[in-house]
């Protein structure tokens, strides 16, 4: 759906994006993670043809960008660096204007589509109020509504939950999951690990303009071959498992061996109390921290 090859953007002396090769496949919810200033928005702008790459290529729905925008963009819904609307017009009027501006906005179905989309993003009640009376969260929802108006095959969302409250973030997450279940591919950028971890099926990590990681989330979170045990009886466990314990942190032990059931049976048969036990999985945070260079003063990922 989106494929970039060695995509690079230089602003004067600043290398904003440096040799990024993305591969977003149909059916992904792709999380594009990176700290503020790491180049997410610049990459999104190049994908959409707003900014011209210094070097490298972009293929959007099989079309080379920016040339193929006329063919590709009608099937793409986008939110780039915050929403924008004409403040003196209502949310509805804004959606209608944008729809009428380009190809594919069939007039006959326009009102119906606007109604449906306002309902989807939770603005049904305020759709007739002028946008200048909207809160930041409401504007964000309106922007998302505009992206959804023509039922795009691909959604490109740059920090879609900015400015939303926790309830709003959950609603957006559920909406995106619903759209994904109905076949929409989603590419979203975020600086929030938790957001990506809860929502995405595939992750790309950007660190100061470079793509340092791109993988399916399930693979990143695969078991590590070790088991985590919580027990109050450290000394006895230590005696029993001698040598297999790799790490201790209070009650928490990390034990070599990928079979939690076998380890559990062993501990219990020896009368050692176990409060918690399971295979060790790396969290996305650990993966990301390992992938980004944390030695720099510029911390790789902010939460």
């Amino acid at each position: 759906m989106i494929r970039t090859r060695e995509l690079t953007k230089r602003y004067g002396s600043i290398l904003a994006v440096d040799g990024v090769s993305l591969d977003v496949r149909a059916g992904d919810i792709y999380g594009f993670l990176g700290a503020n200033g790491s180049g997410k928005t610049t990459t999104v702008r190049m994908i959409l043809g707003l900014v011209l790459a210094t070097s490298g290529e972009v293929q959007l729905l099989g079309q080379p960008m920016p040339r193929g925008g006329r063919k590709a963009l009608p099937q793409v819904g986008a939110l780039v660096e915050g929403p924008a609307a004409y403040a003196h017009l209502s949310g509805r009027a804004n959606l209608a204007l944008l729809d009428a501006m380009g190809a594919g906005g069939v007039r006959r179905t326009r009102q119906g589509r606007i109604d449906a989309v306002l309902e989807q993003v939770g603005l049904a009640e305020v759709g007739r109020r002028p946008v200048k009376a909207y809160s930041l969260g409401m504007r964000q929802r309106l922007g998302l509504g505009a992206a959804l108006l023509r039922q795009p095959r691909l959604l490109v969302l740059d920090e879609p939950t900015n400015g939303l409250d926790p309830q709003g973030i959950r609603e957006i997450r559920e909406l995106l999951q619903h759209l994904h279940a109905n076949g929409t591919t989603v590419f979203l950028s975020s600086h929030l690990l938790a957001e990506v971890e809860q929502l995405c099926t595939r992750v790309g990590v950007l660190d100061r303009g470079r793509l340092v990681l791109q993988e399916d989330l399930a693979d990143l979170q695969a078991p590590t071959g070790r088991t985590v045990v919580h027990t109050p009886d450290y000394d006895r466990a230590h005696a029993l498992l001698d040598g297999r314990i790799e790490q201790r942190d209070g009650d928490r032990l990390v034990v070599r061996g990928a079979d939690p059931a076998q380890l559990n049976a062993m501990l219990v048969s020896d009368g050692i109390r176990v409060t918690e036990l399971g295979p060790e999985r790396r969290t996305l945070e650990q993966v990301v921290l390992a992938a980004t260079d944390t030695s720099s003063h510029q911390v790789g990922v902010t939460r």
Binding site: L48, G49, E81, P83, A84, L98, M101, A146
Partner: peptide, 14 residues
């Protein structure tokens, strides 16, 4: 300035 330009261009409007 209002940010609507980018949304017009990705709508897409040539």
């Amino acid at each position: 300035q209002s940010g609507t330009l980018r949304y017009l261009l990705v709508r897409p409007v040539g």
